[in-house]
Amino acid sequence: MEFLIASAIGVMTAAGIYLVLRLRTFPVILGISLLTYAVNVFLFTSGRVVAGAPPVLRDDVTTYTDPLPQALVLTAIVISFGMTAVVVMIGLGAFLGSDDDHVDDQPDTLENEPEGKV
């Protein structure tokens, strides 16, 4: 089971990095989302994984999973939504304003560097 989870993390990370290295905004955003999954799952596993041991107190249950990473990952998931939305909005604004959705500065749009004189 640990191998499956770790490999899932690895695959999501690799795919995320590959997409982040693309040249247009949309794949980069998808890549960031994939990295978010990978990071969240990874943080979650820092409590070590158990099946069938809920973090909810019950009289008939003796082993519990680690609740702390869960609480931290929960807010991380919600915040990552907010961050994705902001990044998407910035990407969208850039595209609508310049008709260009490259993530890198384009050579022909580069301005001449000012000489640093006032």
Partner: peptide, 11 residues
């Protein structure tokens, strides 16, 4: 490389 690293770390 990044994927392998995160896999190894998690595992």
């Amino acid at each position: 490389a990044g994927g392998l690293a995160s896999f190894a770390l998690a595992y």
